[in-house]
Write a protein that binds this DNA or RNA. Structure first.
Lengths: 233, 233
DNA sequence: ACCGATTTGTAAGGCAGCTTACGGTACGGA
DNA sequence: TCCGTACCGTAAGCTGCCTTACAAATCGGT
């Protein structure tokens, strides 16, 4: 087994971070110098809304949930990040408190970069800054489409949309259909599409009855992608 | 009256663009060279969703609405831009089709920058790139809070929130309270908070009855900011 | 100052999805 | 393999908002 604590391994991991796609390896080496690698167990908070924005993170292994919780306990999930993503950089750019919380969903491996070092690094590596701008731009477009979903679509359509999105990042084709590795709870799906847990249960049940999906324990398999797409209308 | 077509005036305007806050005037001069100034009458589309992303825009005078329309004709408004904003740069960064539409609300003055020139300019002016990243970051946080609004709050709270936000960019204090220069129709407010026009009419009526706001024609004056804030809870 | 076009006010009826409630099921740690 | 805890399924009742409908008011261009 590789030991992820070694510097050589850190470099190997950096290659798989989207921020460094198309970036020279000497520039990655410089980034390597300012990062600290950490293993974080599942279900651990990395930061909470309101915290000072002292670090930027690179996700190596496992998934991280970016969310926010209202006073009454209700939660929205903005994104579930897969390995390769940068996160936590938004607020550090302006040095304002965290506007979201981040929590690991699995046992993860993350790189931690102190805010100041990240700022300095960006100032010295303009092409990485351009890449970062593009990544933030992609995220903006993604969340714009979340707003459209909430305004234009009802819950069945939003849920179908979620499943079809998960298929892209998380789907594995097998004999019956496309299996989603995600294993989200109904509550987590509800937080992603903005509805109650009970409604997700009901609609998932309808999808199962209509043989659009199949459930094996907590694993979802998409059986009929076409009919699911039709629900988006 | 100043003639906005002259180069000297273009430069004067650039100083008032947020993207160039803290940027040297020699760098602004270079930007000046690649821009084309245009006057656009009110209610004109600048681009539509699906169009090729050929230009970036700087808004000098008047307001521009960034929105999207569903197949059934329903519309979401993502933002109403005030003078000083950059827009249309998101999709040009990646050279993908427009994901939103842009339309003037007033008679406007805009600067048009061809995509390639903007790209080149960014490559040569890293500090402007950093500034752009920060601006896009701010927009991302703004739209995240729109998602929170849609999920956490009911229509009265969302409308109160909208009015309080408009007060920041658009509010003028006068003897009765804070007058909003915006003059939005109920339909436009509905598109901003994700509800029907009729519901806005009803809730605005209730706010008036409770003397939280006052209406003079299409002008809204906030009478009791405190009580309006309480509605956000 | 006029007139067509746009916007506003209001109200009844319907329904999607929330809330409340509770029993059953699966999971994961000891 | 047991047991506590978390998650799931389902259903009845409620409600906030949408839809439909139409009349009144206001706007803006000539």
């Amino acid at each position: 087994m590789d030991s992820p604590q070694t510097a050589s391994n850190k470099l190997w991991f950096l290659k798989h971070i989207r921020l460094f796609e198309g970036i020279s390896s000497s520039e990655m080496q410089e980034m390597e110098k300012i990062t600290r690698m950490e293993e974080v167990k599942k279900r651990q908070p990395l930061y909470l809304s309101g915290d000072p924005s002292s670090n930027v993170y690179l996700l190596k292994k496992g998934r991280v949930k970016i969310s926010n919780t209202a006073a009454n306990g209700k939660e929205v999930t903005f994104d579930i990040l897969e390995p390769g993503e940068v996160f936590g950089e938004l607020e550090t750019l302006e040095d304002v408190p965290r506007s979201t919380s981040a929590e690991t969903l699995d046992d993860t491996l993350i790189c931690v970069i102190p805010r100041k070092d990240f700022d300095q690094y960006l100032a010295m590596h303009p092409n990485v800054t351009v890449k970062l701008t593009k990544l933030i731009g992609l995220r903006l477009r993604k969340i714009q489409s979340r707003v459209e979903d909430l305004v234009f679509r009802d819950v069945p359509a939003r849920l179908a949309h979620l499943l079809l999105e998960l298929r892209k990042t998380d789907g594995v084709t097998d004999k019956q259909g496309i299996r989603l590795r995600a294993k989200l709870t109904h509550q987590e799906m509800a937080n992603l599409i903005g509805c109650s847990r009970e409604t997700v249960s009901t609609i998932i049940g309808q999808f199962r009855d209509q043989e659009l999906i199949q459930m094996d324990g907590r694993t979802i398999t998409i059986l009929d992608e076409q009919k699911l797409s039709n629900l988006l209308s």
